[in-house]
Amino acid sequence: MAQHASQPTLVLRTGPEIAEYPPRTTFGPRTLVDFEFVWLLRGSAHWQCGDLRLDLHPGTLLLARPGMRDHFRWDAERPSAHAYAHFGLADAGRLGDPDHWPLTRSLSPADPMAALCAYALWLAGGTPNPDLTRTAEVLGWLLDLFVRGPVPDDVSADAGLSPHLRRLADSVAGAWRNDGTRPLSLGELAAAAGVSPGHLSRLFRAEYSVGPVAAMELVRLARAATLLQRSNLTVAAVANACGFSSPFHFSRRFRAVYGVPPRTYRTAHATDDPHEPLVRAGLLRLARSLLADHT
């Protein structure tokens, strides 16, 4: 698997492995000569490096760095277990100076870092001949997410939306969830945002390349484009599902935005990005909030 040039390149030294401890076990002090990921599986630990003191529990990922002289004190009441991996760094990619990297990150079941930790352990212990190259790549992905943060700003559906637009998105998403993806008037949209129609129009013109009513239509058309590509619904059924009054009206509006009629789009544009008009208008983040329950 080719690795993107901006991704970090790791040299795996040890692990991932699992170490288990009886209560009150200690380890160190030791001076690290490489990088080490440590994540608790059971129990707890107290980690100290100079004046730095951290309590570690399952759900915490620690990255210790070369030159650190650290010390572990494991749970005094019950057995503990942690996973660890040692690695060198051949190329930091876009991650910058390791001195500026975070020391810990929190993990959750839905966090991609938690899944990568589990996958790295599976690769290391799930086969007679572990795939060390793949394991190093997985740890590289883990390091990238650890340093840069697990969720980039443009992935979160409502990240960056102003309070008025977030309120509008929540209200419209609820309305569409209950009543279908129907068209909404400027007055309805303004009431959802909690501002006057004129103020909402100014907000949209400042933020996007279209007004609020046209923006909602683009979102409905993007949903329709997705249904054309990824369902066997008739064009009439797609039009109805996306709030258009008739197949003729839907076809006319679809062609105006996508350049071809719905049937042609389905047959000749099956691999096109259905969200491309939203991207052009800067509406993708808002659309994700509105369509979360529909796509």
Rank of each mutant, 00 (worst) to 15 (best):
A270V: 02
V155R: 12
G67W: 07
T26K: 06
P150L: 06
W141L: 15
A215Q: 02
G43I: 05
G243W: 07
G180K: 12
R65W: 00
A2I: 11
R266G: 03
A110Q: 12
A81D: 08
T264Q: 11
G126R: 02
Y84M: 13
V238H: 01
N178H: 08
R280E: 11
L161Q: 12
D99N: 13
V195I: 13
L221F: 00
G282K: 02
N240M: 06
I18T: 15
V151L: 12
R223K: 13
S171P: 02
R65A: 04
G243H: 11
A159Q: 12
D70K: 00
A90S: 14
R78T: 08
V147N: 09
P79L: 06
P79H: 03
P183A: 08
V235R: 03
P274G: 02
A191V: 07
L61K: 00
A114E: 13
F37T: 09
S209M: 03
F35S: 08
L203R: 12
L218H: 12
V238R: 00
P98Y: 02
E77T: 09
D70E: 02
S209I: 01
W39L: 05
G211H: 08
T133F: 04
S246D: 04
T127Y: 09
W47I: 00
E137M: 13
T127I: 01
R288Q: 13
V279N: 02
R223L: 14
F244Q: 06
D273A: 08
E17L: 15
A114I: 01
D131Q: 06
L143I: 07
S209P: 00
R78E: 14
C242T: 15
L142R: 09
S171K: 06
V151G: 01
R13H: 13
H164K: 12
L284G: 02
V235F: 00
T104M: 08
